[in-house]
């Protein structure tokens, strides 16, 4: 072993140690470093990314083919089933990705990595949550875009520039809401087995009880009600409208049993849901990270 320079071993002089830096510089430094870690993990273990695109892709191709010969005029506005399904699968992709937001956090809790973060002088421990949100938002948007491109190649249409913006905003709101839910679960549940179980159980029923695969007019009354209350539906319908070329937020996009909803109402509900969930999990996060 070589002998070290004195610099290596001496403690930082007390007057230099807590260098006065802006809170913003500290916050962005720690948040970016934590986000970078999540992306490094993704780059080295890309199976989550691949599976997250592959699964909806299989839905799109197989489910689309299943009803390819559905009689014309069965769906509203004479839409083909592939086109109808596209919006549902795009939303399902973002939803599934965001639902997994809590998993890395849960593993960090279980393996003690979180404790390593908590002994560090983080400017704010929100940076841990913020990094997860940044990571999962980008991941789910990337996956959704991959599905949109594939759907376009399959001839299921492309929303155009203005429509694309509407699609992204809608997905963003849904992803925020679901991420909040998943992060809350990651701190509330005892371990990753339980979290995976919840994700597994929540995933498909939420898909079926939405307008992703069929319009409300096809459903029995009780399922129609469920679908009309399902947050996924509030994301699917504005996107479906955008794909159909309607960018007016005032236009009715969903004829729910309790009344007609415009695109703006849908987005408003999603935004309220995201905000509500973040406020709901905040006390839990504060307690667990204090």
């Amino acid at each position: 072993m070589t002998s070290a320079s004195p610099l290596t071993l001496h403690a930082a002089p007390p007057d230099q140690a807590p260098a006065e830096r802006s809170a913003f510089a500290d916050l962005s430094q720690e948040t970016l470093a934590l986000t970078r870690r999540l992306f490094l993990q993704l780059a080295r273990r890309p199976s989550t990314l691949v599976a997250g695109v592959l699964q909806p892709l299989i839905w799109l191709v197989l489910f689309g083919a299943l009803f390819a010969k559905a009689p014309e005029g069965l769906l509203p506005d004479g839409m083909s089933y592939g086109r109808f399904l596209g919006a549902g699968v795009i939303v399902f992709t973002a939803f599934s990705a965001a639902l997994n937001a809590g998993l890395p956090v849960m593993f960090d809790r279980e393996f003690g990595f979180l404790n390593r973060l908590l002994v560090a002088p983080l400017r704010s421990r929100s940076s841990i949550v913020l990094a997860s949100v940044l990571y999962i938002t980008s991941l789910s948007l990337i996956q959704s875009l991959a599905i949109m491109v594939t759907a376009a190649l399959l001839g299921y249409g492309w929303p155009g520039a203005a429509g694309l913006l509407l699609v992204l905003v809608t997905l963003l709101l849904l992803v925020f809401a679901v991420t909040a839910l998943s992060l809350g679960l990651a701190f509330a549940l005892p371990g990753h087995i339980e979290l995976i179980a919840v994700i597994f159980v929540a995933n498909l029923p939420l898909l079926f009880a939405s307008t992703a695969l069929a319009p409300i007019s096809f459903m029995p009354t009780w399922l129609g009600w469920l679908a009309a209350l399902n947050p996924l539906t509030f994301a699917i319908e504005p996107i479906r409208a955008a794909y159909a070329g309607s960018f007016s937020l005032q236009a009715v996009v969903l004829e729910a049993p309790y009344g007609d909803l415009t695109g703006l109402t849908c987005l408003g509900i999603l935004a309220a849901l995201a905000l509500g969930l973040f406020l709901l999990i905040r006390p839990l996060l504060d307690r667990k990270l204090s």
Partner: peptide
């Protein structure tokens, strides 16, 4: 973090200490 290299771990740690 098993999937990071030692240097990446130190870089992360350094950022957490600003």
């Amino acid at each position: 973090d098993k999937i990071l290299t030692g240097r990446e771990m130190l870089r992360l740690q350094g950022a957490l200490y600003h």
